Computed example of a mutant assay.
Amino acid sequence: MNASSPPLSLHQRILGEIEGRIRSGEWPPGYKLPAEEELALAYGCSRMTMNKALGELARAGLIERRRKAGSFVSQPPAQSAVLAIPDIGAEVAALGVPYRFEVLSRATRLATKSDLKRLIHEGPTSVLVLHVRHFAGSRPFCLERRIIDLATVPDATSEPFLDLPPGTWLKARVPWTAAEHRIRAVGADAATAEALSLSHGTACLVIERRTWSDGCPVTSVELAYPGDANELVAVFTPFQS
């Protein structure tokens, strides 16, 4: 260090040391960090200072914070696909055809074990469950099955979703800080086939997505698209640290 350089603040030292452990591989992807109070004690700082530092590391994508579960080292960008969260209405508009959607069903309930697993939530919590069909012109474009954690997004309880579909509404209301995509090809089950006007077993592109806001689960959604009318395209550049 240059002799004229100012000394690092405690906040900078915490960020630098934790980042160094992650990038060196001492704390590998998936590693659970010590509890916030343990780190605060080790660095001789307040929990508020440590919480701020961990929040900054989460925003930088180095760690993932999960409410009640702790903080975990994220997969580095070189090892995971990074995809934007698209707006279905904008996707349809880009095709040059009219867009509309309809809410097929909605229910508010105490989260089931399956709901908690999808949200990666230890519970208990209440959720809003939505089934939504999106159209491109007169053709069904996508079937959406969504769970919203009402502890994180309480306003969703009274939202009728008449003007905006759930995904667009959430993006405008709740800034997400972390997301996970899982993409697979499946044969349409009976309900999906009926909703998308397909034959039973027709290949569909299914995108499962979870989002978090500062470590709190926001939503888990499954989007099913007719496989013969959709493709997944990613444009990317080499990762630069």
Rank of each mutant, 00 (worst) to 15 (best):
A193T: 10
A190L: 12
T177E: 11
R173I: 00
A190D: 13
H200V: 13
R184T: 11
D189G: 12
A185L: 15
R184K: 06
E194S: 14
A195S: 08
A203I: 07
E194M: 09
A179L: 05
S199V: 12
A193E: 06
T177S: 15
P166S: 15
L196V: 06
T202M: 06
G201I: 11
C204E: 03
A172Q: 14
T177G: 11
A191Y: 07
A195I: 04
I183W: 03
S197G: 05
G187R: 06
A191Q: 14
L198V: 05
P166W: 01
T192H: 02
A188C: 02
A203N: 09
W176E: 10
C204Q: 02
A172L: 13
E194H: 07
P166C: 11
H181Y: 07
V174P: 04
V186Y: 11
A190T: 12
L198H: 07
T168W: 03
G167V: 02
K171E: 03
P175K: 15
V186C: 09
S199H: 08
A203M: 09
D189R: 11
A188F: 02
A179Y: 03
D189F: 06
R173E: 14
R173M: 05
P175L: 13
A185E: 15
A195M: 00
A195C: 01
A191S: 14
R182T: 05
